[in-house]
């Protein structure tokens, strides 16, 4: 057993864990962040995507110890049920969600993109979600949703700027 400290969705944790515990198992089984899904377990599908220090990673391909001292964002840190993030709103409004299994990872990949690039092209969006497989939607509505979310975020950004 080893001790690790990490911050998930803004909250600090100090935990004793098995040495070979994967990050996804820590998040789901120990901390209850079950929005992070396990699909293939080999880094092919992206369902387990989380944001680690600003970058998307496959949480099935990391040992929990690699997150020691770091900040992680899971889908639970993006929005609340009664206060959705614009990306989530946009996914709902544009019918981008069918079975939903890939969506947490998809939203996190979109979030990481929009944090870096406020005005992405459709090509940028496709590139950003190329590590997230969806077997239902055919991706078009997901790309539409992310594009629209970027517009909403830009608009809100300029509105809050005007208020200042």
């Amino acid at each position: 057993m080893i001790n690790i400290k990490l911050n998930v969705n803004g909250k600090d944790y100090d935990l004793e864990i098995e040495e070979d515990l994967r990050l996804i198992d820590l998040l789901r089984d120990r901390l209850g962040f079950t929005g992070t899904k396990e699909g293939c377990g080999e880094g092919e599908c992206g369902a387990c995507t989380v944001i680690l220090e600003g970058k998307t990673v496959n949480s099935c391909l990391l040992l929990a110890i690699q997150a020691h001292g770091k900040e992680i964002t899971t889908i639970e840190g993006i929005g609340k049920e009664d206060d959705l993030h614009p990306i989530q709103e946009s996914f709902l409004e544009n019918g981008a969600v069918q079975c939903g299994y890939c969506i947490p990872g998809m939203v996190l990949s979109a979030k990481a993109l929009l944090d870096k690039n406020k005005n992405p092209t459709r090509k940028d969006i496709r590139e950003a979600i190329s590590g997230n497989l969806c077997r239902c939607t055919g991706y078009e509505k997901i790309v539409d949703s992310i594009e629209k979310a970027s517009k909403i975020l830009q608009q809100r950004g300029s509105e809050s700027h005007e208020q200042l």
Binding site: D20, G41, E42, G43, L61, L62, L63, I65, Q66, G69
Partner: peptide, 27 residues
């Protein structure tokens, strides 16, 4: 050695890792 882990984690899951002492060098 565990650098990026993208191959090693798959090996560990399958019990195919060649060494039993893993050094996380990713930091």
């Amino acid at each position: 050695l565990l650098a990026g882990g993208t191959d090693l984690l798959v090996d560990i899951r399958a019990g195919k890792n060649k060494g039993s002492v893993i050094i996380d060098i990713s930091d």
